[in-house]
Design a protein around this nucleic acid. Structure first.
Lengths: 225, 225
DNA sequence: ATATTTAATTTTGAATTCATAATTACGTCA
DNA sequence: TGACGTAATTATGAATTCAAAATTAAATAT
């Protein structure tokens, strides 16, 4: 009897991952037209699995489909993020609460380490590494919450937010504030104060939204769609 | 110039809606194998759009895909709902909070009406209509919250929960408690006490989960997948 | 030159086809 | 009878094909 069955993922799943990165990492910027044929050639697949992947990404909110007209990388608008951020706040708050209930001392120590690294990158003004470690902290809290449904939903929203390259817009003042908030996050986590952590995380997201909004209002003066 | 352009939705969207109903309404019960061919014949479409729809439903969590083996209506497990309910709680709590900020007196009056109807169905022990009006209240609060992202996510989870036909399992005691909780919901809403409403809604979901869990533990003694 | 039709081209939507994996049916042998 | 192996059948994954819609290019008129 075979226990260790090998299940090669189907093409559309593979494409899903790759397209998602392309979009989230900004290689395909918001508003870009996605012509099926050229993307298919790029990955050497036929249109069938490509179209399947695009349909999933459309439900995910990363792609915008117009019947008979094709697919675009969906834009990141202030109006959209105004709605996304409160939802993310609720989810990340829950993430903090659940994490405090379940997290082990070892996991906390691990997060503390990432936190210290993040502070180091802040002091060295290394924006890219700061962003990476920052994200790693939120991911670690999410992991500690140990809720797959929560993770999936949170990541889906986080991906959409990440496309706004707002980091470049962070003033020194806001950056400092973000780090301060992260100190509070660690503190609440180490004390396992779930409700407090939830509240801090929600507040943290609110100030993040301010940064993103300012950035978007510069980038996207008007424009429809 | 044509302003009123007609955009016929593509087949896969049409199928998406129909399949979703089939699954949520229980016509295709959890665990059912979904043979592509027969479903295609049922709707008179080819496999291409059907497969596109199935892939989307799989991301939604209503369908389970196994590579090279096909699609099944995903099962409703206690383990899954244990994760879904807290997330729903966070979302519905936010829904209550936002609703309290935005809701008009007229909208409140409308919800009060549905509430009265619900109480009437409770007294008449009309389970089906009770369930309908109950759901309508939560939908109305969600609508008042006026957040599309929130609505989408909430509905996706609610659909998965609805598939557990737990209502049949409601004891008189629990039913009474649910109605009592709904009285509190109305009260907090009319007083526009957002945080309180959020808390009540979360609690409300917790007791709902108890009912669902009891039902599932009878229905699904063990079983994998 | 600009606007407006009309034709050609391209792109998309969906059915069909083909290859491959999985399942079922059958036959053999202990 | 039942376990095992092999062939036949069926179902799925993905490429291809075909029809229809949209876009672009060309032609005509103003």
């Amino acid at each position: 009897m075979n226990v260790e069955t090998i299940t090669r993922p189907s093409l559309h799943v593979e494409l899903l991952d790759r397209l998602r990165s392309l979009i989230v990492e900004g290689e395909l910027p918001p508003g870009t037209k996605i012509p099926e044929r050229s993307l298919c050639e790029r990955y050497g697949v036929s249109r069938t699995p490509m179209r399947e992947a695009l349909k999933v990404l459309a439900v995910d909110g990363l792609v915008y489909l117009e019947p008979n007209r094709g697919a675009w990388v969906s834009k990141v608008t202030v109006e959209e993020l105004e709605q996304v951020f409160p939802v993310m706040g609720a989810l990340e708050g829950l993430s903090g609460e659940l994490a405090c209930e379940r997290i082990t001392d070892e996991e906390i120590a691990e997060i503390r380490k990432i936190h210290e690294a993040m502070v180091k990158h802040y002091k060295g003004r290394d924006l890219v590494r700061y962003f990476e470690t920052n994200q790693a902290i939120h991911e670690a809290i999410l992991a500690a919450a140990d809720n797959q449904e929560l993770s999936t939903m949170y990541r889906s929203l986080a991906a959409r937010v990440r496309r706004a390259r707002y980091m470049a817009n962070m003033t020194d003042e806001r950056w400092e504030q973000a780090v301060r908030e992260h100190e509070d996050i660690l503190e609440a986590l180490e004390a396992r104060q779930g409700l407090k952590l939830a509240k801090i995380l929600r507040e943290h997201l609110k100030s993040k939204f301010k940064t993103v909004r300012d950035w978007l209002e510069v980038q996207e003066p008007d424009s429809l769609n």
